[in-house]
Design a protein around this nucleic acid. Structure first.
Lengths: 195, 195
DNA sequence: GAACACTAACTATGGACATAGTTAGTTGGA
DNA sequence: TCCAACTAACTATGTCCATAGTTAGTGTTC
């Protein structure tokens, strides 16, 4: 259900095609929410059917065309309602922690490699999120810049602050995961003193 | 795919029925991995077809019967292979952070309530995981006790250490989430000084 | 003007997961 | 003895999501 609101969030800035949205999910917004194009196109059609969006054929070159969607009033209202409601949290389901609980089954070196992979994964994410925070602070985030251009100056600080707050939370989480995996490496060394 | 390995992890202790496994997912192991029974029963049949398990009819009362599954050698090998391999990490998809990024759309009080819900959710998890660590330390975890009984004494410390390590990681994560949401509450107060 | 990368949109398949049922037997207490 | 709660297992539906294609037009470059 969240994909729908991620799409509404983007379309609240400006009209976009499915392909535009797909590219956003591959880059900028993709660092908070990801979706493949095979999920985006049908969802856009469903949203149009539900009255949240309106699509319009736009010419592209000589013979080409593309479908550009813009958010409707009902779409804006639905997004606002989602924001004013409370999220339901789903049950834990984390493969990395499931695996960690049974690492005694792995060879010591495989266990270490799993911890290193955990560190690599979260380090890569960390760098992307830190870059995002830098962009927000320096006003060089293209999407945020376009968003701010649609809003009165009085809204700018809030809009910016929540984006930065979000990325900082993700950064803190990644740092915690890295610290945990480092403790894991230390634990493995302790449990398998030979090597 | 992880459900399969969560089931193998449990069945490596002793034979169980689908219902036994379902109950484990509702309580003990459910604090690391959750699955509904409607997912467990078909997965067990698929695993039997793949030769990882063998099911056997067991009488239950006068007319009742139940199907008890035990892990095969191929099942043990598959679990060990999974443990020795490296996990693939999936892309970010976190509704709470997606929502946090656009909290300027919410009423201040709704934004606060979202942060409070985040704190409530992670506090509840925290308590369950802390209780798990206590059980592990005091040797009162039923599942772990039964597992240790199947293993030579030399394996006990490793088996226990990785379970504790896992829960400690989940605890640290939950604590981080709570701290983040508290920063969120402070930020909302700052951005909406009136109320 | 052919090749190539990109834009644009869609389809097909299968697994994962949530939610909501159904059917039938067992066990223990009022 | 009956009822409620529990044990046991299964089905059905729909969404979500990953993976892997397909088709067709555009724009640039060698």
């Amino acid at each position: 259900m969240s994909l729908r609101y991620a799409l509404l969030a983007l379309l609240s800035v400006e009209p976009m095609t499915g392909y535009d949205l797909y590219k956003e999910f591959e880059s900028s917004v993709g660092h908070v929410w990801h979706a493949p194009d095979s999920q985006i196109y049908p969802e856009l059609r469903r949203m149009e059917k539900d009255g949240l969006l309106e699509g319009e054929e736009v010419v592209w070159g000589q013979r080409g065309k593309k479908r550009q969607y813009h958010i409707t009033e009902a779409g804006t209202a639905a997004f606002r309602d989602w924001m004013n409601g409370t999220l339901e949290y789903s049950r834990v389901r984390d493969p990395a922690h499931l695996k960690a609980a049974y690492l005694e089954w792995a060879e010591p070196e495989a266990a270490r490699e799993q911890m290193r992979a955990h560190i690599r994964h979260h380090t890569a994410q960390l760098e992307q999120w830190r870059e995002k925070v830098r962009e927000i602070e320096q006003g060089t985030s293209p999407m945020l810049t376009r968003r701010l251009a649609t809003l009165p100056a009085s809204e700018h600080s809030k809009t910016t602050a929540f984006k930065k707050f979000t990325y900082q939370g993700l950064i803190a989480r990644a740092e915690q995961e890295i610290a945990w995996a480092q403790q894991g490496l230390a634990l493995i060394d302790e449990l398998y003193p030979a090597g």
